[in-house]
Design a protein around this nucleic acid. Structure first.
Length: 551
RNA sequence: AGCGGGGUGGGGAAGUCAGGUCAUCCCGUCGGGCUCAUAACCCGAAAAUCAGUAGUUCAAAUCUACUCCCCGCUACCA
């Protein structure tokens, strides 16, 4: 394992709030991985930024009568607040509209141009004579050529989900007039040039998921198309060519470069050589499956195009989309749960626990189900893990005056339990390093279940022989759990830590401490109380009834 | 259409890449126990020809071929 790592997650588009789907696939897995690597002693930084540019933001800000600057500033702040409430802890949350990113993007463009990877081409684009501007993407609405739904964007039909090649009956989304076709000069990135090198990169990187790799390799085999990287709008990073004042870069040209520019700024501000650090680190980009194309092809191609001045990704953990009650999340149909709204009802750790437990390391979609959420929280988190913590510590308080007893000679069952503690570190490490967060969490529950059984068999409340050993090992198992669940549920982890009577921040404990039997006789526990409150069915029913139309 | 992923006891999932140690986990049902613990927890039982067919093999949920059925992606989006 590399001693340095940079972790990023897909940049939230600054035009709406963070919802459950966002955090499930990218921000939460990335946050957990960051916390885990830090426990392993890796110098790791989790960097993110808001994605500020593009047509949808420009249009929306115009509608709301705001400048795009103010508009994205608002969402940048709000998103960060929501992330923090969910204990997604970035080391730095910046923005693609930062001066550093502007500079960086323009530099990269120039280098690509010098390298012969950029060319100009005239394309035909719709132009509105009333508004005197070109109309890319969402500036044009019309009839979807596939399903004939009216009032759809030219770059996306929300009815059927497809991307029209050419929309029927095009209209300007600002004034409703029919636009005309005009020629305009655009810049293209020669993605084709990189087919071989991309194939090599994908082949040689064994950390990438096999299924995603296959999928991308097929695209390469079918032949890549060069990529239009400019737009005729005012909101974006200007093209660094004097005669092109009216053009900006397409959002997907500039946004992922903010991974690098934000990291460099953060590290340089903290007295490190950002570029060196980047190149010495393992680079992780956590994404959802919808942006595989950009991260497995555009992003590496652009880094290859500037001679790998910044190293290519080592890991691109890609996860599926979240459905809600088995249906696609949709804001317009009110089939949607905002992160903020959720956290007003349930603790962050409940959501973190549930989302991880249903989220495999694959592109498979996962489903948020309210009933399943309640069951998993009540029976697995509370009935199994919470119960063990509470019964082991509570019993020690009641029967041993909160003091850890001196163990007697271990019998077979004690030794087996001791072994479980000894092996938990390596069992979990293997799973977490392989990004199998769901399996690691299951392993933790298995561990906890074992100690529930052990406690039951030993019947320490009867105060027979072996009671001291049982209490001794159980309390130490709780300590192991506290450290092990830290990446997943940092708040609960810290609570257990305090209940154990341990000082300081549990996050400073190294991962190997999980297997250390560190609480010796005479250690005094803190004050003990149940960690979790059960999820009430009535609240679940209330939440379910909020979804969907209420006309 | 192409590509990708699936079909495992009543429900939801794991296991499939490296075939045997495997039929596992959670919920539910039934019976028992315990009383330290948030009506928790522990033990046990019923219930699956692991979609179907054919094959490879000493051995297949796992590999191969074909068939049926689901879902996702195809360059906007986590």
């Amino acid at each position: 394992m590399n001693s340095k790592a940079i972790i990023t997650s897909a940049l939230p588009y600054a035009n709406g709030e963070i919802h459950l789907g966002h955090v499930a696939s990218t921000y939460l897995p990335a946050d957990i991985t960051t916390r885990f690597l830090r426990q392993k002693g890796v110098e790791v930084y989790y960097i993110c930024a808001s994605d500020d540019f593009g047509t949808p933001i420009l249009i929306q800000s115009e509608k709301e009568g705001k400048t795009p600057e103010d508009y994205v500033e608002h969402w940048n702040k709000r998103d960060l607040e929501d992330f923090e409430a969910f204990n997604i802890k970035f080391d730095f949350f910046y923005k693609t509209s930062s001066p550093e990113n502007k500079q960086f993007v323009q530099d990269v463009f120039k280098k690509l141009e010098e390298g012969g990877h950029i060319y100009e081409n005239e394309i035909i684009q719709l132009y509105c004579n009333t508004d005197k501007k070109f109309l890319p993407d969402r500036y044009v609405i019309g009839i979807c050529p596939y399903c004939n739904a009216d009032d759809q964007y030219s770059d996306l039909c929300e009815k059927c989900g497809r991307v029209p090649d050419e929309i029927k009956d095009p209209r300007c989304s600002i004034c409703g007039q029919t636009p005309v076709k005009e020629k305009t000069k655009h810049y293209f990135f020669k993605l084709k040039n990189f087919s071989n090198k991309l194939a090599e990169y994908l082949d040689s990187n064994n950390n990438l998921q096999k299924d995603v790799k296959k999928y991308v390799q097929n695209w390469i085999k079918e032949g890549l198309t060069d990529w239009d990287i400019t737009r005729d709008i005012s909101w974006g990073i200007p093209i660094p060519i004097d005669s092109e004042k009216e053009k900006v870069f397409y959002g997907w040209f500039d946004n992922h470069l903010a991974y690098i520019s934000s990291t460099i700024k953060f590290l340089n501000d903290n007295g490190k050589d950002g570029k060196n650090f980047w190149n010495e680190s393992d680079i992780y980009h956590f994404i959802g499956k919808d942006i595989v194309y950009h991260h497995y092809l555009f992003l590496p191609a652009m880094r290859l195009g500037i001679n790998e001045e910044y190293k290519l990704p080592d890991y691109i953990p890609t996860r599926g989309h979240l459905t809600l009650q088995s249906k696609k999340i949709s804001k317009s149909r009110n089939w949607y749960i905002g992160l903020k709204e959720f956290l007003e009802i349930f603790p962050a750790d409940y959501l973190r626990f549930y989302l991880v437990s249903i989220n495999p390391y694959s592109q498979d979609d996962l489903n948020f189900d309210w009933d399943e959420f309640a069951t998993k929280i009540n029976s697995e988190l509370i009935g199994n893990l919470g119960n063990l913590v509470n019964r082991a510590l509570g019993f020690t308080v009641k029967s041993f005056d909160a003091v850890v007893p001196n163990p007697e000679d271990f019998d077979n069952m004690d030794r087996e339990s001791e072994k479980m503690i000894n092996e938990l570190t390596s069992d979990l490490s293997a799973l977490m390093e392989g990004n199998h967060l769901d399996r690691a969490l299951k392993k933790i529950l298995q561990f906890s279940a074992h100690f529930n059984q052990y406690f039951q068999h030993k019947e320490p409340w009867k105060n027979g022989p072996g009671t001291n050993s049982c209490v001794f090992l159980s309390v130490n198992a709780v300590r192991s759990l506290a450290i092990a669940i830290y990446p997943f549920m940092p708040e609960s982890s810290q609570k257990i830590w305090s209940q154990l009577g341990l000082d300081g921040d549990v996050s400073t404990q190294g991962f190997a401490e999980i297997s250390n039997i560190a609480l010796k006789q005479n250690h005094k526990l803190g004050s003990v109380s149940p960690l979790f409150e059960k999820v009430e069915e009535s609240i679940i029913e209330e939440q379910k009834s909020k979804l969907g139309d209420h006309n």
